[in-house]
Design a protein around this nucleic acid. Structure first.
Lengths: 156, 156
DNA sequence: ACACTAAGTTTTAAGTTGCAACTCAAAACT
DNA sequence: AGTTTTGAGTTGCAACTTAAAACTTAGTGT
């Protein structure tokens, strides 16, 4: 069992909780494989080049975190299908954001193929933090507001 | 080994590259501390509860990856300031996306304080993947398109 | 001179990762 | 039916990484 991440200065944050599930070295790569349609142990193992015991362990954790769902195949009862749950699919923005960051600041290679909207085949936007009315915000435009103040302000 | 090639080439994806820098267990927590304005070793150490040697090692790597910048303070020459670079600040969307996921699917605690636009004190939007014209997309709306096809289509 | 603080190292124990070899059940040949 | 192959894991063990606490080194404040 891994250690729990605890003791933060402002402790009502979802990040430690997310890292509990996704903080391991291979988790994002396994998730990416799942998003790319890989469903079986051997597929992932050979495609990622991860050690079998580590893959088994990570898949187990991802299933335990309800990010993946483990179903034995009915047609070939040796096979297991790992499929993304709704909770798993919800990690897409985080994963794409990381990927885009890696593309922009990584080795500097413009990556190919490009992630596009299936409807019009145009590239997706760069992921950013948006204000309620859709303006892109950066770090300096952000502020922590207490729930109580929020409600007070909404009433005005 | 002439099998069907799964298109998961590491070199054509920014994710492995991003994980090179951010894939360690504590990296996101350290980054969060930096976004929260913590600048010094002792501050981070006591706030995160991370072991000193690990913190030293991670700070070193984040500096090497040019996510943080290490500057000795001029006013007190014992102190070192770790400040986010532009590259580091660009990780904000990825971090917020992860945080929001943790909030939604984690322990179910509605988190407080809330991240808001400093201008109007209204909460930021939930981070999502958007099409070129701003529609939110999910996994099933996405497709990989080769650069060459992209250019061809733009010409029409 | 003295104690104290900031930012690290060092040491040693405990835990994790990676590789290769092995198991075990179900399916596919022969 | 008997053998081989495949899929999804375990197991054992060496190499590496992490954690906790004590130690170091330079700079400060008194």
């Amino acid at each position: 069992m891994g250690k729990l991440i605890e003791r933060l200065d402002d402790d009502e944050c979802g990040l430690p909780c997310a890292l509990e599930a996704m903080g391991e070295r291979w988790s994002f790569m396994i998730l990416r494989a799942a998003f790319n349609g890989l469903k079986h142990f051997e597929e992932m193992q050979s495609s990622l080049g991860i050690a079998r015991n580590i893959l088994a362990n990570r898949l187990g954790r991802l299933v335990e975190s309800e990010i993946l769902e483990r179903t034995p195949c009915p047609d070939d009862r040796r096979k297991i299908e790992y499929r993304l749950t709704e909770k798993g699919e919800a990690l897409l923005p985080a994963m794409i954001a990381l990927r885009q960051w890696g593309e922009r600041f990584g080795t500097g290679i413009p990556s190919n193929p490009v992630l596009c909207d299936a409807r019009d085949h145009l590239p997706v936007r760069s992921i950013s933090v948006l204000s309620h009315d859709g303006r892109p915000l950066d770090w300096h435009d952000l502020q922590w507001v207490d729930q109580s103040e929020l409600i007070a302000e909404a009433a005005e």
